[in-house]
Amino acid sequence: MRFGLIILTLLIGIWMVMGFAFYLGELGSVIKTSDFGDMHAGDEGRIRHEPFLPLGWAVGVLQISIFVCCLSLGVGRKDAPFRRALAAGWLLFAAVFTFLAVSYQWYVERPQANFLGPFPTPTTILLLGMWGAPLYFVALFVLMFDRWILPPESLERAERLLDVLKEEESN
């Protein structure tokens, strides 16, 4: 029940934020460059994105929250260490996304001065941070598999169930 209510609240949150963005209306647009064939250009970032950045950030964080809730549903455990571990992952993921949004704001001010590695700072955060942060959940899955995902008692329960079903079938 609680899981359903939490996810439904998060989904309604996305509806509301998007509804507000629709109410404000689009600013700027994709420009189809005539000089370079089938290549689009992105218009002025400051005009196009600045008013929507907080709304976009909210949608991103709501989405990340839905993903982490779904991970928790898949494991189905209610013990504190597992919840803490998952909450830490959510915090990491949401923090990376927040940093991406903030660094984009710096980027639109002075694009050519904001490089981190070979790419602009927010793009580097996207490529390394947004890609890398979920590796925490991969590590959690592998390292804690025997404790949280499929502990020996769960495996035993599954084997017992299969034995009972086999017995019923043979009878």
Binding site: M18, A21, V30, I31, H40, A41, G42, D43, E44, G45, R48, H49, F52, L53, G56, V59, G60, Q63, L100, Y104, Y107, V108, P111, Q112, F115, P118, F119, P120, P122, T123, I125, L126
Partner: peptide, 30 residues
Amino acid sequence: GGFYGMANTIVKHDPEAIGPWGTLGIFGCL
């Protein structure tokens, strides 16, 4: 200049294209 040269070329032509939302925009990407 490898990837740095490539990013530099694109940023001079259109900073949004090599920014995190590309030309599609923030909500499209999300």
